[in-house]
């Protein structure tokens, strides 16, 4: 189940590799034996129907919930690391992050420096410098002193991204980064992630419910259904009519977009209009 950029074996493989990840909540197995691999600078999207375990997989990879299996970042088994050390390798942004309304954009982004601050220490000049430059990169410097409660949806998403980038981790895990955004802002956020990925050679793993969007931006897709990885590969290999019909229960047509990537669209009951 390796993407085009994944290395197959070596413990020093760059990027993120997960093997046999399983999660049980209470008695119920939510995720079983899922593996994924994304090399340095690669973008892997986790897709699947509601309740397939996409978010759970991301949280398991981030080490936030107890899970079976092994996760390696640049060859380091991150589940065995102290949270602080792990947070320097993996940055995670949840689907709906808590954004305290009175906290300013700058203060929130500065939280991303937490893994570099000693337990009872305080932010160094370097932490402030990194945060300032991240805000500048994301065009947020003009927003720095604005409270989070005064931001629009697209601005919020960029602020969350800024916090994750301030962690300076090589692997970025984003849970549904485009949720609740309109079309234009979806594109802005995805383009932004893409540019950062290329510029910093970041490994990006996202869950995405929009299949066309996933096919547009990711190099590798992992299709989850019922807690298992039922397909993995390039967008062309995963976004196929039979696979989507079987696992999403949806009538879809898949055709090539002008750029050659697959375009998924729904087909109305009763066929096309006459």
């Amino acid at each position: 189940m390796s993407g085009p950029h994944a290395e197959d074996g070596g413990a020093d493989a760059a990027g993120v590799r997960a093997r046999g990840v399983g999660v049980t909540l209470g008695e119920r197995p939510v995720l079983a034996d899922v593996s994924l691999s994304a090399g340095r600078g690669a973008w892997l999207a986790v897709i699947g129907p509601n309740g397939a375990g996409k978010s759970t997989l991301l949280r398991a990879v981030a080490g936030l919930i107890p899970a079976e299996g092994a996760v390696f970042v640049n060859g380091v088994p991150v589940r065995a690391l102290r949270p602080r050390d792990r947070a320097r390798l993996v940055a995670y942004a949840p689907q709906s992050p808590a954004l305290p309304p009175d906290m300013t954009v700058y203060e929130y982004a500065l939280l991303g420096r937490t893994p570099y601050i000693a337990y009872l220490g305080r932010e160094s000049a370097r932490d402030r410098e990194v945060t300032g430059s991240v805000l500048e990169r994301l065009d947020l410097d003009a927003f720095a002193s604005r409270p989070l409660g005064h931001l629009s949806g697209g601005e919020r998403q960029r602020v969350v991204l800024a916090r994750a980038l301030a962690q300076q981790a090589p692997v970025l895990l984003l849970d549904e980064p485009t949720t609740a955004l309109d079309l234009g802002h979806q594109q802005q956020v995805m383009d932004l992630v893409d540019q950062l990925r290329v510029a910093d050679r970041l490994t990006v793993v996202t869950t995405l419910h929009d299949l066309t969007l996933a096919g547009q931006y990711a190099d590798t897709l992992v299709l989850l259904a019922g807690g298992r990885a039922v397909a993995a590969g390039t967008p062309d290999q995963v976004l196929t009519e039979p696979l989507l019909a079987r696992h999403f229960g949806a009538r879809v047509r898949v055709g090539p977009a002008p750029d050659g990537r697959p375009l998924v669209h729904l087909v109305r009951l009763g066929g096309a209009r006459a």
């Binding site: 065009d139 931001l151 949806g153 697209g154 802002h185």
Partner: peptide, 20 residues
């Protein structure tokens, strides 16, 4: 892939939301 110069990122300034 992306012709954005050395700093990597050139993003359009998004329009401001109604809240701001």
């Amino acid at each position: 892939g992306v012709a954005t110069g050395e700093d990597g990122v050139v993003v359009e300034r998004p329009r401001q939301g109604p809240a701001s």
